[in-house]
């Protein structure tokens, strides 16, 4: 017995939910970034799974989208971590609950 497309989709759903959990419930800014990266990676797994189980294409579209999305995720991580450092310089904290200066 070999794994079906459903099995891969369920794994990627679980990874997405864990990323959502990290992004929603942790108070630390770096954890929120880790959660967002996990959600993006779950989307990549979906692209690759649909490419593998779908009809054969030339050029390989799913692989291309996954490659570009990895590049964009790297840019996002760099900017996000730079923002964490900039926020830490100004407020001396990285706890997102204390960053409430703009709250009405």
């Amino acid at each position: 017995m070999t794994p079906t497309l459903q099995a891969f989709l369920i794994v990627s759903t679980a990874l997405f939910s864990i990323g959502l959990l990290a992004a929603l419930s942790r108070r630390h800014a770096i954890f929120i970034l880790i959660g967002i990266e996990m959600m993006l990676a779950a989307a990549n797994l979906n692209f690759i799974a649909f490419w593998r189980f779908g009809p054969h294409h030339q050029p390989p579209i799913g692989v291309m989208i996954a490659l570009f999305s990895i590049a964009i995720a790297a840019a996002e991580a760099a900017v996000g971590l730079a923002m964490v450092i900039a926020v830490y310089r100004h407020y001396r904290t990285t706890n997102v609950d204390q960053l409430d200066q703009l709250r009405g």
């Binding site: 959990l21 992004a23 929603l24 419930s25 108070r27 954890f31 990285t94 706890n95």
Partner: peptide
């Protein structure tokens, strides 16, 4: 700041 992370918002668990 980060020796250990304070607090966990349990509201995220039901949503996830």
């Amino acid at each position: 700041d980060v020796e250990k992370d304070r607090g966990f918002n349990w509201g995220g668990v039901p949503i996830a």
